[in-house]
């Protein structure tokens, strides 16, 4: 690892000032992805700003939403009583990610900022437009079994690896971002980006900004019928081939509202808006779920090695909807 300078500010203002002062500086919190990337030489910041002293770890009930500090640990969020009771989908998604040791280190903000696990991004001997813009994409004609089927470009077909972010997308969360200019809020679904011509940009966070909290609507109607299903190569501790976060507002036998998002299929958590709209007002039935899955898969495009996702993804949508609505 190339050496770097290290500072540990004790206030948010000092941390943001330090970031603005030095163009090659970066925040570090859990470090589970950043230290890995630095060891491999994928990134080499000249200064790390340790933000773990900042008071951003609280998980609290506010009017109409639950506010989760950006530095709350993945394990603490997953086990927190407010989350297990009111946002079980988020708790399930967090527990489906990484390992207990990593969840004890990783923060909510860091989880959002983690980079893709595309092997071409990590392999310095291969081209990668995300790591080195303009160098090409090793995955498009390479071994692309783990890669995107939605929203990819001819520059990049990597997927975002987070489980937590899939749940937060389905739950209509809001990201609170602070900078020297003050705070701004953006919908969670607008935080991450599609690759387009600039796959080096994973998200819409600007230089000089810090994620300080996530606000998740405390929407009781979705609490009861929600589920995160993750399909992976082994039973635990692996990235998703495909995952589905589903939350249904059910009255009698009718779906009043649906929230659906997928992981492992795109450069960002993939919200299934068209399928949600289709399900609105429909009765609970296998036929409707199959149709919703077909609608969700409309623009899917596979590459040489991830063709299986074109069947796995709709099947996982149907299975998740069946389980969450209680039909067998």
């Amino acid at each position: 690892m190339i050496n770097f300078d290290y500072v540990k500010p004790s206030t948010q203002k000092a941390a943001i000032d330090a970031l603005n002062k030095d163009a090659s500086s970066q925040f570090i919190a859990g470090g589970t992805n950043l230290v890995d990337l630095m060891k491999r030489g994928v990134v080499s910041p000249e200064k790390l700003i340790d933000i773990t002293n900042l008071p951003l770890k609280n998980i609290e009930q506010q009017k109409g939403f639950i506010r989760i500090g950006a530095l709350a640990l993945n394990s603490d969020v997953a086990e927190h009583e407010l989350i297990t009771k009111k946002l079980p989908l988020l708790s399930q998604a967090l527990k489906a990610g990484a390992s207990p040791q990593l969840r004890n280190m990783a923060t909510v903000g860091g989880n959002m900022m983690q980079r893709t696990r595309c092997t071409y991004f990590y392999d310095l001997t291969m081209p990668c437009n995300k790591r080195q813009p303009g160098s090409g994409c090793g995955a498009i004609k390479g071994y692309n079994r783990m890669h995107a089927i939605f929203g990819a470009s001819d520059k990049c077909i990597a997927v975002h690896p987070s489980d937590m972010c899939v749940a937060l997308t389905a739950l209509d969360a809001t990201v609170v971002i602070s900078s020297s200019k003050g705070d701004r809020r953006i919908p969670f679904a607008d935080f991450h980006r599609l690759p387009g011509n600039n796959p080096e940009k994973d998200n819409n966070l600007q230089r000089g900004e810090m994620i300080t909290a996530i606000e998740v609507p405390d929407n009781d109607v979705f609490t009861k019928n929600s589920l995160y299903v993750k399909i992976r190569d082994r039973a635990s501790y692996a990235f998703a081939l495909v995952s589905v976060a589903a939350a249904l507002d059910i009255k009698g036998n009718t779906i009043v509202n649906a929230r659906l998002a997928m992981g492992g299929v795109a450069h960002k958590p993939w919200r299934l808006t068209a399928a949600e709209n289709f399900l609105k007002g429909k009765t609970i039935s296998l036929e409707n779920f199959k149709q919703a899955a077909t609608i969700a898969m409309k623009d899917a495009k596979a590459y040489e090695h991830n063709n299986f996702k074109l069947r796995l993804a709709p099947n996982t949508i149907v299975e998740t909807l069946k389980k969450v609505s209680g039909i067998t």
């Binding site: 540990k8 570090i28 470090g31 230290v35 890995d36 340790d50 773990t52 040791q101 990593l102 280190m105």
Partner: peptide, 13 residues
């Protein structure tokens, strides 16, 4: 008291 991975933890932190 919490289990973590020491290979991904910076000592200075």
């Amino acid at each position: 008291g919490k289990r973590v991975l020491s290979c991904l933890s910076l000592a200075i932190m």
